[in-house]
Write a protein that binds this DNA or RNA. Structure first.
Lengths: 139, 139
DNA sequence: TTCAATGCAAAAGTTTTGCACCTCT
DNA sequence: AGAGGTGCAAAACTTTTGCATTGAA
């Protein structure tokens, strides 16, 4: 909690209960939640928090580089507080988004030549398929 | 044209003027258009064609593996008739989506171990950044 | 006290759906 | 003739916006 306050201050953001709650949730979870999921998860403790605030807050976090947005198909974007480049596995059946740690497949931009005439800011490596649980259910 | 008809038949899809037009456009372009862009491009020649048909057709094409959907952030999905895995460069300034041919960064799923408990169907490697043209304009 | 953040409601935008009609096979 | 595709309008969803109010610095 103390750390989050500090991180927000370092990024010259005002420290509000909403921001603390959202960032804390993103740091704790591994499920790469959507804005809606964040909203529903925090609602019990923060009944007055609005979905608009979540979107605005996620925007601020993105700009500050505290969070990355994952466009994984499906209705809505997913958010990840781990901003270093790393591959993701996305189940097209249940929508689950999982981290996949693999150093050889992280920071792939370093493997590109310098002169491609395109300044890369960030990268996303997404593997779409069927997860273990869904495969079980179908069989 | 004859080829498109054949491809559709091979995938047991009825051959309609709308499908031919949409697939033909996707084969010819390199701009990775959105549904809206396809609609506007084809409107002059196919004034009666509806946006709903484009979405339904793209869905069929996706299921048949004739087209891949790119979730590149921004408002709408983009479509690519090149379905073999290849990296894309996405300009966060103008929204342009470009192919980037690089054999070392294609079919990355082959570099994963087999036993990860996840059946990969397809992959997307996206590099986000600023393209040459946008960089020029800012300076 | 001041300026940014929040909450609410409305708006905007994309994608989906239902259904009658049409058309490919 | 029959199954499937199309077009239209409405609906469903996610995300954004405007503005009055609140709260952090």
């Amino acid at each position: 909690m103390k750390e989050i306050t500090q991180v927000l201050r370092e990024n010259s953001m005002k420290v509000t209960p909403q921001r603390i709650a959202i960032y804390q949730m993103l740091l704790q979870t591994k499920e790469h939640p959507s804005a809606e999921t964040i909203y529903k998860t925090l609602s019990p403790d923060h009944p007055a928090m609005s979905l608009a605030t979540i979107y605005k807050t996620l925007d601020s976090f993105k700009s500050a580089g505290l969070v990355q947005e994952l466009n994984v198909g499906g209705a809505s974007s997913r958010y990840d507080a781990v901003t270093v480049a790393h591959p993701h596995l996305i189940c097209t059946c249940c929508g689950k988004v999982m981290d996949y740690k693999n150093d050889a497949l992280s920071n792939l931009r370093e493997k590109l030549p310098e002169n491609i005439g395109f300044d890369i800011a960030f990268e996303q490596l997404l593997f779409y398929g069927i997860c273990k649980d869904c495969k079980k259910q179908v069989q």
